[in-house]
Design a protein around this nucleic acid. Structure first.
Length: 781
DNA sequence: CGGCATTTATTTTTT
DNA sequence: ATAAATGCCG
């Protein structure tokens, strides 16, 4: 596992081996050792609703796992009576591992520890018939969903240019997040050209006939079942004596309802979260859920975890200062008993490339040991950006300087084109009537079965109420397609017949069968013949896919799990700097963190502000808080005055969040580029001057930004340099006699922003930053 | 039906 | 700038 994950909590949980070996220690509970009073209370308050408000780095996962162990060790609950919900598989896995570790070797499985979705699948498979599905329903991925919606939009006669399927998918998703079935969508909701509701209903009907559910359905169906079948709900209510929820601030309405329904009997629900880290409002998360907890669950105990074990006081102070700007929050005050540590560093750059260059150098400095720090591994460093397109400049730069990096949160393995194609083959081979999968691969690789042929197949299938594969078989036997299509389709059908037979026969291993399918279908060959640069990688991924099969009993089992699991872990040994989005960084921590791109419009994102106004700014601010609190030792915030955006140059003002950083926790740096290529003399003077002038807080930057944008910055290379002290510019005019500490007297022959071209009396000519020279008259002799 | 040209969008992302 | 996604023509 990666070294950066909550390593402190592990350290603290360390229990002497002797005690571990003794199993349950007399009088003691090792899982309680080292817990602070608040954590202890959170672990021991087992009865009734509990809200654990856990700030960043306060050891919440530790408290949560200790709570589970406490429930088990005290005999309060058996493992299968505990419902523990997380958002990601990763979090679920980690919790399972930790509970197992704390319990010692008797790792009794926790059958109901998982993500909302995986738990819902489990429940839904048992009661599928109550919502018109069979228990072997398939789970659609986004691609399937879009393809289906496209058909429905076309059937409805809507122009899919103006009303794209993606948009409808988003809309339906949002409705499902709110637990709205088609009937519950408010009448008069004229979304999607007024057809939203109709299309939603049609989509749901179609899913039913396909015996399929999308991700939103998993929750929605279970909530529906709970609401309409009290007997079923009752069964689960009684079953789950204790409920635990992680990241409660990220729950949406459907998840909230699901929890409320289940918790109503025993009322032993413990929700853990941090309202200040709610950053998923845009995909349906309701901060309101956590803000309302005490009202929703009467008699709730609220426990605040405020002691931070992760970051230095300065980092904590900076984060607290920023988040204090939010109005809608429950309010926590993080503190630490640490006293050491550097201030958060702030630096402005001319443009995005310079920012990347500077950060690259800083990373190398850290690696070699700088400013009295020990050398730091690249693994311990991360660059957290607001939007993924910001990653590019860093990748470019790191490639040229040969700095190893890893990008976290790219396209996930199982979402890749070739993997989905391959899995579609497996799906059809496993169940011949999987129409969506068949559609996906019927002409991949190209078989000359185009739109027209596919339409014919569809029609025949629908008219006769048979699967697409059967319809194809029919067409091949009876004719009705072009000769070429018939021939190719026939080959494909023969293939599926063989593969399906092989699966049923159970003689060959599923791995062999998978290889045969990929080979005989021509899919491997298809990529071998492809000469795009991605092709080799795709073949590599296919090999990896086959390898992943080893962990499963059979193809069915594999397909079953894969739709819910999005693995991404291909760790290799090289030490690498991590580049990821702020969203992707939630829950992680790094000794050294860089936060680039703090410019208004980029961060906070213009779009967020336009769409959600003040609430949008607040969510962005929480994002800033999440970013800063990822840092353990070193945190560097930066911004660029100019940035390439969609091809053209754009200048921007420093982020409003920068002005919200408490100055006492910040050290303002001056980029080396400022010295105009001249000598390093005076650098420290300069720095001091800037710090004292509180430059980032002064209007200097604003003026600079205003001036440069007024001038229309189209050729930034023309005048590289940054105005820190705007006063300096107006001080000089052409011809002025000036004095420079190191270079002596000279005359100003040119002015470019804050940089002066000076011909010195000692013969040299140089460009110098204005603040390095003084008017000659002022020089005392 | 497939390949090349033109068009268009472009925050954040899990399940 | 750039990539992905359509549209048109052979």
């Amino acid at each position: 596992m990666s070294s950066w994950e909550e390593s402190d909590a592990f350290k603290e949980a360390a229990v002497p081996l002797s005690q571990q070996a003794m199993g349950a220690p007399r009088g003691g509970s090792p899982y309680m050792d080292g817990l602070n009073p608040a954590q202890r209370e959170a672990v021991e308050t087992l009865q009734g609703p509990v809200l654990m408000l856990a700030g960043a780095g306060t050891g919440k996962t530790r408290a949560l796992t200790a709570r589970i162990v406490h429930l088990l060790r005290t005999g309060t609950a058996r493992p299968n009576e505990i419902l523990a919900v997380t958002f990601t598989n990763k979090a679920a896995r980690e919790m399972k591992m930790r509970v197992g570790g704390m319990l010692g070797e008797m790792v009794e499985g926790m059958p109901w520890l998982g993500t909302f979705h995986s738990l819902c699948v489990k429940i839904l498979r048992r009661h599928a018939e109550l919502v018109g599905l069979k228990s072997n329903f398939t789970i659609l991925d986004t691609d399937d969903q879009i393809r289906l919606l496209k058909q429905l939009i076309a059937a409805e006669g809507i122009d899919d240019k103006r009303w794209p399927a993606r948009m409808l998918a988003g809309l339906i998703d949002a409705w499902k997040n709110r637990a709205w079935t088609p009937e519950r969508v408010p009448a008069g909701d004229d979304a999607f050209n007024g057809k939203g509701q109709i299309l939603y209903a049609a989509y749901q009907a179609r899913l039913k006939t396909l015996n399929a559910a999308d991700f939103g359905d998993l929750l929605l169906h279970v909530v529906t079942i709970f609401q309409e079948h009290p007997d079923v709900l009752d069964q689960y209510r009684r079953w789950f004596k204790y409920i635990l929820v992680d990241e409660y601030q990220d729950t949406n309405v459907a998840q909230y309802l699901w929890l409320r329904l289940l918790a109503a009997e025993h009322k032993n629900i413990c929700c853990v979260g941090d309202d200040d880290q709610s950053i998923y409002g845009w995909r349906g998360a309701e901060v309101g859920n956590i803000l309302r907890f005490e009202k929703d669950f009467e008699g709730a105990t609220v426990i605040k975890l405020e002691q931070n074990y992760r970051s230095t006081p300065h980092i904590l102070g900076a984060a607290s200062g920023v988040i204090a700007g939010n109005k809608t929050r429950l309010g926590k005050t993080l503190w630490t008993d640490r006293t050491d540590g550097d201030k958060v560093r702030l630096i402005g750059h001319w443009d995005g490339e310079e920012e990347a260059r500077w950060i690259g150098e800083e990373i190398e400095n850290y690696q070699h040991g700088t400013r009295g720090l020990d050398p730091i591994s690249a693994d311990s460093m991360a660059i957290l950006v607001r939007a993924s397109h910001q990653m590019r400049s860093f990748e470019d730069r790191f490639l040229t300087i040969g700095l190893p990096y890893r990008v976290i949160g790219g396209p996930r393995f199982y979402e890749r084109l070739e993997i989905r194609d391959a899995m579609a083959y497996f799906r059809v081979a496993v169940s011949n009537d999987d129409g969506l999968a068949f559609e996906r691969i019927v002409n991949t690789p190209k078989r000359g079965i185009g739109d027209k042929a596919q339409q014919t197949i569809n029609t025949v299938a629908r008219e006769n109420g048979i699967s697409l594969l059967e319809a194809s078989r029919h067409l091949v036997e009876q004719g009705g397609l072009s000769a070429k299509a018939r021939k190719e389709l026939g080959i494909l059908i023969d293939g599926f017949d063989r593969w399906s037979a092989a699966i049923r026969a159970g003689v060959d291993s599923h791995i062999e069968i998978a290889e045969v399918i990929l080979e005989e279908s021509g899919y491997v060959e298809y990529w071998q013949n492809d000469k795009t640069p991605e092709a080799p990688g795709r073949l590599e991924n296919l090999k990896e896919l086959v390898k992943a099969l080893e962990q499963f009993e059979n193809l069915q089992g594999f397909l079953e799990h894969v739709s819910l699991i999005m693995e991404n872990e291909t760790e290799d040994a090289t030490e690498k700097v991590s580049i990821m989005t702020l969203h992707g960084a939630k829950g992680l921590e790094f000794p050294v963190v860089f936060l680039p791109g703090w410019e208004d419009g980029l961060f906070p994102s213009q779009r967020s502000m336009d769409e959600s106004g003040q609430a949008g700014v607040e969510e962005e601010r929480r994002l800033a808080y999440v970013g800063i609190t990822r840092a353990e030792e070193q945190c560097t915030i930066s911004f660029a005055a100019n940035r390439r955006v969609y091809g053209s140059w754009q200048s921007s003002m420093p982020s409003r969040f920068i002005d919200e950083l408490p100055p006492e926790h910040v050290e303002v740096l001056t980029p080396p580029g400022l010295y105009g290529g001249g000598s390093g003399y005076g650098a420290s003077d300069m720095e001091e001057k800037v710090v004292n002038a509180d430059a980032y807080n002064s209007p200097g930057w604003r003026r600079m930004a205003a001036r440069t944008s007024a001038r229309g910055l189209s050729q930034p290379s023309e005048a590289k340099g940054i105005v820190i002290d705007a006063q300096a510019v107006s001080t000089f005019t052409l011809g002025d006699r000036v004095h420079h500490k190191a270079l002596g007297f000279g005359a100003v022959v040119g002015i470019e922003g804050d940089k002066l071209s000076i011909v010195f009396e000692n013969g040299g000519a140089k460009k110098v930053v204005a603040s390095f020279v003084t008017p000659a008259d002022d020089v005392p002799f």
